[in-house]
């Protein structure tokens, strides 16, 4: 049920384009002050979701609320409280980057009191605001959209793969800025297929596949559902572990072995390893990569 306090609350959203079911019963819940990672490959429905949240498209069925209002009907009122960065930024080719940023701030009626912030962001993103946007690379166009969104005085940021064109230095700067925004209490919906980015920034995350959220929770919760990787060196053969239902993918070369263990059986495996006279052990939690691979590599979407 829709939580009154949620910043974004979407339930059973369906959106079809002809025969294609772009969103298939999608549900999403974002709390105030939360940075929410929205993870999925290309074509999984991330951008369609964003555009429904912006009120540019309307869902066929299901409910969508932002700040407890309908994004289709109250688009203008809601847009005072949110800012958006599209995945593919197209700008007016004969305006300079600086002009575009200022135009957006003025359209929001926030020109005067955001000057310092705007100039600071231009500096931090290392953007030359005097160049016409037609000469900008994808990364620079993205910076323009990011600066005008981040300089805006809003409660919610909708960022659709905002850093896909940025270099690693700028990516780091972006992460720094998003952390600052979180401290200010802003909510962020950050769509991405870059796992490291979502991992570093998100409080919670949702994984979308074929228009449906397949996993949602904090990073810890999601990791819990999956396997820990062990890298061990043992005197005795790890033969004893083979065939256990909760130990997977054993690969052995010499004394070294590599395998994965279901989270709830780690205790048991540790006990068995002791008996095999373990010389060295490295265990690491599952990466998002593994998490994602599990959802995407197996079966073909129905």
């Amino acid at each position: 049920m829709s939580n009154q306090n949620s910043v974004i609350s979407a339930h059973n959203v369906v959106k079809t384009f002809g025969a294609v079911r772009a969103l298939d019963d999608l549900s999403l819940e974002i709390a105030p002050g939360e940075v929410h990672g929205f993870l999925g490959p290309n074509g999984s429905g991330k951008s369609t979701t964003m555009r429904i949240l912006l009120g540019l498209m309307r869902q066929d069925s299901g409910t969508v609320r932002i700040f407890n209002r309908d994004p289709w009907h109250d688009a203008v009122a809601l847009h005072r409280r949110l800012a958006y960065v599209p995945g593919d930024v197209e700008l007016w080719p004969n305006l300079t980057g600086g002009e575009v940023i200022d135009m957006f701030l003025r359209l929001r009626g926030q020109y005067a009191h955001t000057r310092t912030r705007r100039n600071e962001l231009v500096e931090r993103f290392d953007l030359d605001p005097r160049k016409k946007t037609r000469t900008y690379s994808k990364g620079n166009r993205q910076k323009v959209a990011l600066i005008s969104a981040l300089a805006s005085d809003v409660d919610l940021l909708l960022l659709d793969e905002p850093t896909s064109g940025l270099d690693p230095l700028m990516e780091a700067e972006f992460q720094e800025i998003i952390k600052e925004e979180r401290l200010k209490g802003r909510s962020v919906l950050l769509s991405s297929h870059i796992l490291a980015q979502v991992e570093a920034l998100s409080d919670r995350l949702s994984i979308i596949r074929a228009g449906r959220v397949v996993e949602s929770g904090t990073l810890a919760e999601l990791r819990h559902m999956t396997r820990t990787t062990f890298e061990v060196e043992t005197t005795h053969s790890v033969e004893a572990l083979v065939g256990l239902s909760y130990v997977h993918n054993i690969r052995t070369s010499g004394a070294r072995s590599l395998f994965e263990v279901d989270a709830e059986h780690i205790q048991d495996v540790m006990a068995r390893l002791t008996r095999l006279q373990t010389q060295s052990i490295v265990a690491h939690p599952p990466t998002l990569e593994q998490l994602l691979m599990r959802h995407y590599s197996h079966e073909v979407p129905s």
Binding site: L95, T96, G98, E99, V100, D102, M103, D128, P129, R130
Partner: peptide, 17 residues
């Protein structure tokens, strides 16, 4: 190409602009 204005003229920041 010549560099342009680093800031927008005020007229740009309205729907009509």
């Amino acid at each position: 190409t010549r560099p342009g204005r680093p800031n927008a003229r005020p007229t740009l920041g309205s729907p009509l602009g």
